[in-house]
């Protein structure tokens, strides 16, 4: 026994800190057990989570089948559970939010690192980070009371007149809708994108920047051709996390999107996302509606997981191409 443990101990020290399959010496037993328990509990939580969503939504899948994914009408009052309008609204609001937030976020990061005087860096950074600390219901209220009238009377008519009422800025306006939801989301994901992209941009080796500058590259050439490509995997990560937050954001979206599930015809259309529908309807749902909301949760989970997986593949490919 002692021989065995001592050999285990040697292996543990020489190879890794996980301690292999066999329990180590008595003094390490607590540690050995606790890291395994942690991993086990975490794994079990995920399995239970997926299982409970599957279990909850099973009757919806068996009674409606693929119609849940392809149906164009979401109307619990007539037991019609087609989630396509919700899926589309989720993807559109996330995409538009990223379209707005990524350039602004990257610009903010580059400005903070390269252009701001030292004494302004900390206040600007903490201002952006403050956005992350604002509860989402506050964003929702801000959207409802401040942005809705403003969108309705100023922004949307202006967008429509600039584009001549062309897609995607066409149709009736009332302030609420996909565009406002996207704008609120873009503000909400901005701190995530700024915080991560700032860190990865700051981590670009200074020698490379100096090298590029010394070869005669302009400041913009250095930023676009050296700094951003070098930091791109990290920037992908920032965008992925931002997309994850936008896909799952609930209350703020529910308050400004108009909660009227329909296939969007333009960015001015009202709609409802997967998560806003769950939040809006869950409290008073039971029976078939509850199962259908479970199915929405499953769809949302699959979308979020695919976004993560897709980003990971892109990152891996980018790394390989880089090396």
């Amino acid at each position: 026994m002692t021989e065995e443990s001592s050999s285990t101990k040697t292996r543990l020290l020489s190879r890794d800190l996980t301690g292999g399959i066999h329990p180590p010496v008595k003094s390490d037993l607590g540690y050995w057990l606790s890291i395994r328990a942690g991993a086990l509990i975490f794994g079990a939580a995920i399995v239970l989570f997926v299982w409970s969503i599957l279990h909850q939504s099973l009757s919806a899948w068996t009674s409606h089948g693929i119609h849940i994914l392809t149906g164009t009408v979401w109307s619990p009052s007539t037991s019609n559970y087609g989630a396509l309008p919700l899926i589309l609204a989720t993807l559109i609001t996330t995409a538009v939010a990223l379209l707005v937030a990524v350039p602004i976020g990257l610009g903010t990061s580059l400005t903070i690192i390269f252009f701001l005087p030292q004494r302004l860096k900390t206040p600007i950074t903490s201002l952006v980070e403050l956005l992350a600390a604002v509860p989402s219901v506050v964003y929702g209220l801000w959207g409802l009371f401040v942005l809705v009238p403003w969108m309705n009377t100023t922004i949307e008519p202006k967008l429509a007149s600039i584009t001549g009422g062309g897609f995607p800025f066409n149709g009736a306006t009332n302030g609420f809708g996909l565009l406002l939801a996207s704008i609120v989301l873009s503000v909400m994901i901005l701190p995530t994108i700024v915080a991560i992209s700032r860190d990865v941009i700051a981590a670009v080796p200074h020698e490379q920047i100096e090298g590029a500058l010394s070869l005669g590259a302009t400041k913009s050439q250095t930023l676009l051709k050296v700094v951003l490509p070098e930091a791109r995997t990290g920037i992908f990560g920032a965008i992925t996390l931002g997309a994850g937050r936008a896909l799952g954001e609930t209350i703020a979206v529910a308050m400004v999107i108009g909660s009227n599930p329909q296939i969007p015809k333009s960015l001015f259309s009202t709609g409802a996302t997967l998560s806003s529908t769950i939040a809006t309807e869950f409290g008073e749902a039971s029976g078939a509606q509850l199962a259908a909301l479970g199915a929405l949760a499953l769809i949302l989970m699959v979308i979020t997981a695919s976004v993560n997986a897709g980003a990971r593949t892109l990152t891996r490919r980018a790394l390989r191409g880089h090396a």
Partner: peptide
């Protein structure tokens, strides 16, 4: 559960939400 009347309509949560949405629209 109230069915959405048409594409111009707005859904809101609770009496409070309907009152506020009506006031802002």
């Amino acid at each position: 559960t109230f069915p959405s009347p048409n594409s111009n309509s707005l859904g809101a949560q609770k009496n409070f939400g309907v009152a506020n949405t009506t006031e802002t629209t």
